[in-house]
Amino acid sequence: MQSRRSPGFWLLITLVWIVVGFLLAPMFITVPISLTPTRFVSMPDGEYSLRHYETVFTGDAWLGPLGDSAMVGIGATLIATFVGGAAAIGLWRIGGRAARIIGVLALMPMIVPPIVTALALSRAWVTLGLFDTVIGVILSHAILGMPFVFMTTSAALEGLDPRIVEAARSLGAGPFRVVRDVIVPNVRAGLVTGGLFAFMISWDEIIVTLFVSSRSVFTLPRKIWSDIRDNLDPAVAAVSTLMIVATLVAATLYLARDLLRARTGATR
């Protein structure tokens, strides 16, 4: 290990910030493109316009997919959080070999390459009559989100004293009442984080969506996908900018909450 202040270390830091620049570059480019006054993708030349945002917010071309994505995202998040969270809690209580094996099983949708999942669900949904239905898309996104809720909830449970469950039962609470009164309030952070993951996965999902829907369900990524393939439309940049801004706002709120909590904790 090199001592902290050696020139070698600062050279490394410089390289690292170049990498960070590379990581953030796409975000810096979409913002100006979304403000271009021209009809085609270009860097604005001293002149800015909000016309592409107008395009996004008027008419069904973008608002339709936006609505579909929101509906699918919320539905998938709810299912993934309930199913994944409940299983994590159940397996935590059951424990042992069976729980470990099922734990690996629960992670499978995260491990299997999306294109393979897409193929499998596409066939199955046709058989079950779920192809190109809202329920079908919600279910497939929920399956993809479940492992994340399962992981974050399991992690939260690891820090929980199992004796508080036994304490609650000795005080008269039945096995499911314990879940509601004692376990869920103590792993809420894990459930919320997992739910957030599940929503982001659904919001961003394209591969499986391409295979389980065609026309009646048309999510935002699907709309972007078809636009990128056809021609480069600055409206895509406008939507991208909106999504980046939403992400940054969420991240800032998250960090601010953390910071706030640290500060109130410190004054205690």
């Binding site: 508080i164 036994e166 005080l171 008269g172 039945g174």
Partner: peptide, 20 residues
Amino acid sequence: LAPEKRDFGVVFQGYALFPH
């Protein structure tokens, strides 16, 4: 009988107070 039906008071190791 399930634990919750036995009506015994139990003081656990480490006390197991509900942190929330």
